[in-house]
Write a protein that binds this DNA or RNA. Structure first.
Lengths: 352, 352
DNA sequence: CTGAAAGCGCTTACAG
DNA sequence: CTGAAAGCGCTTACAG
């Protein structure tokens, strides 16, 4: 096995604008102009410079350009979570890919921040010119990040939304509409005894949007149809909690004919519990989930009827929004509410 | 609604090292030294400078530091895929979070590249100093990215591995071992008629590691136990393909008592097919999946026995490896093979 | 222990 | 149409 020499920095790296200028027999500014399609340049000069660029394999130094240009052309996507290890159960891959795709289209870099951030650290991201803007995930009704960024007038965009939205741009899932839509659908099928397994109490207490707004929507739906309240606040990301929540619900309300959950995981637990107690889904009880779709829905047996959003699309749009804001292309704050899509699969059925 | 003025760049941004120097009544290099804990500085001066830094809210300009320092302190993670939209079905979130976490610990930035990359574009990432190194995903036995990077002597690390590994650093899942381990486990339970739903033929043809090595491991296992071959190459990411693949397999081999799949999705399809044909899992037939774990396994009913790896850990380690390589902390190429962990759940059982 | 000088690679007025 | 000069914010020898 021949041992090769592995230098830490590469030789190719050395080609600078000065090299190109020398090779083409012109000055550095001239090369720069040609690179940036500025002003008038003699066609013959342009040819010569391009020739030099090609033979030298020159590419402008991104960092230097950015230093000169003032903008970092870098965005951050922040999800506050104690343990990044667990993020996979909280957020879908498509959030990353949607953001990454939009950023790359707009020639921005994107940094994913998946940790608890101190106010100091957040400010430093801007102050030290690491980022031009940030996209906030998991926004609370009263969110310190929003307050801080707003005070300091640093550009940001939310996926989600806080309480005071004046002049703020966001894209959010419309949970209120989703809840009512779920009831519209189930009531239409003849259901009147509907149980709801919602977000954990801790989410509600800390003012997390989905928790607060789902419950609001739930109340609307109840009064719209004159139904009585029947819900449990349970953990989001475990089949077990769905299992136990469902058992709980049925112990006190054996008459239920439908269950709405806010995660595919708890829906799966719900189905497990029902099946185990001899209730067939959807024959004896319908189950539906509100949330992100993806592959989960069809893995479950029976496959899940859902009201879902595309995290890819939502994050893509949020990122485009961020770049537009930075380019001053937004005349006013953009506030976008995305309605969910109803996808009927096998887990729901009319009451017999 | 009061209309606020939204300047595009922020005022706080202006604080530079020169401001600090002036405020503290010292020269710029002195501030720089203090910032970087260099050499001897009079304690009294240090105090004064720190004081100025604090009151001005100064943070060093990252881009400028990088320009001066030579390194971009930025890494890329590349997954080649035609449609980034579909990435969520191919790769787990934990890949991103593991990478992001390691990068942030080492004070690197990380850019996720989730698109088809041209050779030209890949070289440009280095030439234009956008990145110091790249982490390659979905590596083929003969991978143009590897060849190109190697030729140009640009630093990279693989999650996966190609055929010629001389002097290359990687961390890969040990699929051969996994296959044999699956058979060890099932044979121990008394199974001798075992069907295998493996990666699609296209993967095998393009030389994708998991496809090639799973099949190799499969052959080893067969000859180890003197069993006959019985497998199908099917699509990875759909419940349907698992469903149909299983039906296919049983049509010609009704005697099968166990199925091994390489994805949770196809395993779910497998269970669906078996159940639908009146075969109880695991009573009449065991099903197990080789691959990443996560929440999928317990969503399925019965929950899946798996041989699994943690994508968080694998990507975390790969990223650390990359930073070590860049810091020249690696005396030789690191080649790490990660064995899977067997997690017995409900979907497997001894032959009765 | 500290400052004046040069330079990282580029771009943008400013003259010609 | 093109070049000389200044500067983006920082760090690193080099003198003192």
């Amino acid at each position: 096995m021949t041992k090769k020499n592995t230098p830490s920095r590469n030789e190719n790296r050395g080609v600078t604008i000065a090299d190109v200028a020398k090779a083409a027999g012109v000055s550095i500014p001239t090369v720069s102009r040609i690179l940036n399609d500025k002003e008038y340049v003699a066609e013959e000069t342009r040819q010569r410079v391009h020739e030099a660029i090609r033979t030298l394999g020159y590419t402008p130094h991104t960092q230097a350009r950015r230093l000169r240009g003032g903008a970092t052309m870098t965005l951050a996507l922040h999800h506050p979570i104690e343990s990044p290890h667990d993020l996979s159960s909280v957020i879908e891959t498509s959030y990353f890919t949607g953001t990454a795709e939009a950023a790359s289209e707009k020639e921005y870099f994107i940094n994913f921040l998946v940790s608890q951030l101190t106010p100091e650290a957040l400010l430093n991201m801007y102050r030290s010119n690491q980022i031009d803007g940030i996209i906030l995930l998991q926004v609370r009704m009263d969110d310190w990040r929003v307050n801080l960024l707003r005070e300091n007038n640093y550009p940001f965009v939310m996926i989600g939304r806080c309480a005071d939205l004046e002049d703020l741009s966001f894209i959010d899932l419309d949970f209120e509409t989703a809840m009512v839509a779920a009831f519209d659908y189930l009531v239409e099928l003849g259901h009147r005894d509907i149980g709801f397994l919602t977000y954990p109490q801790s989410w509600h207490k800390t003012g997390l949007g989905p928790a607060v707004r789902s419950l609001d929507g739930y109340q609307h739906a109840l009064s719209k149809y004159g139904l009585r309240s029947c819900y449990r606040e349970i953990g989001l990301n475990s089949v077990e909690e769905g299992f136990e929540g469902t058992n709980d619900l049925f112990r006190e309300n054996p008459e239920l004919t439908a269950i709405i959950t806010v995660s595919h995981l708890t829906a799966a637990g719900s189905i497990k519990a029902l099946t185990q107690h001899g209730r067939n889904v959807p024959q004896d009880c319908s189950v539906m989930a509100i949330g992100f779709g993806g592959n989960f829905a069809s893995v479950v047996t029976p496959s899940l009827t859902t009201l879902e959003w595309s995290p890819y699309e939502v994050s893509y749009r949020a990122t485009i929004l961020m770049t537009e804001k930075l380019a001053n292309e937004l005349s006013s704050a953009q506030q976008i509410l995305v309605p969910p899509k109803l996808i009927v699969r096998e887990s729901t059925k009319e009451v017999t």
